[in-house]
């Protein structure tokens, strides 16, 4: 029963997230690029989107302090990693490079699926390829280390 409720909750969260992306203008890459490009007519709207999203989520984490477990599950599953390593920096820079080229990050790329725009679908294909190449590379690398 709780498993079904978790799935429904996740679906509703996805819808709210998506409407937020559309209302905030993040779904449209040309808005994102007008923020990332500082040499043209700079558009600060993204600061308001990110700022309010961070603020509301901050309040969410504040509420979480009162809970011993999430409402629909037994435990919280939150990363406790603290190490700042080369992967974090290299990966984030590579992500930024891709983000700056087209103006799409994973959320909008997935959310725009049913708009059926050929270029956004092509980006989504690239996103899936990049994600799978990483998983494959990782498993090959782990096997290599094991058999060496």
């Amino acid at each position: 029963m709780f498993a079904v409720m978790r799935t429904v909750a996740a679906f509703l969260c996805g819808i709210i997230f998506s409407l937020g992306l559309i209302l905030g203008g993040i779904l449209n890459p040309s808005n994102v690029l007008s923020f990332l490009n500082v040499s043209g007519n700079w558009n600060p709207a993204l600061v308001f989107v990110l700022g309010s999203a961070v603020f509301v989520t901050f309040c969410g984490f504040w509420l979480k302090k009162n809970l011993s477990h999430p409402l629909l599950d037994a435990t919280f599953q939150i990363s406790t990693a603290r190490q700042i390593d080369k992967s974090l920096i290299a990966g984030s820079c590579l992500f930024g490079l891709g983000w700056g080229l087209t103006g799409l990050c994973p959320g909008p790329a997935i959310a725009s699926f049913f708009l059926l725009q050929s270029k956004s679908l092509l980006f989504l294909l690239g996103l899936i390829v990049g994600t799978m190449v990483f998983s494959y590379r990782n498993s090959v690398w782990r096997n290599f280390l094991r058999f060496r």
Partner: peptide, 29 residues
């Protein structure tokens, strides 16, 4: 536009908070 930005961001924050408080997970896409 800026009110839309604030409202849009708040919805994103609401979704992340709800996923955290209900399912106990991080809504990282």
């Amino acid at each position: 536009t800026y009110w839309n930005s604030l409202a849009g961001g708040s919805l994103i924050g609401l979704a992340c908070s709800a996923y955290l408080l209900l399912n106990g997970r991080i809504a990282g896409i």
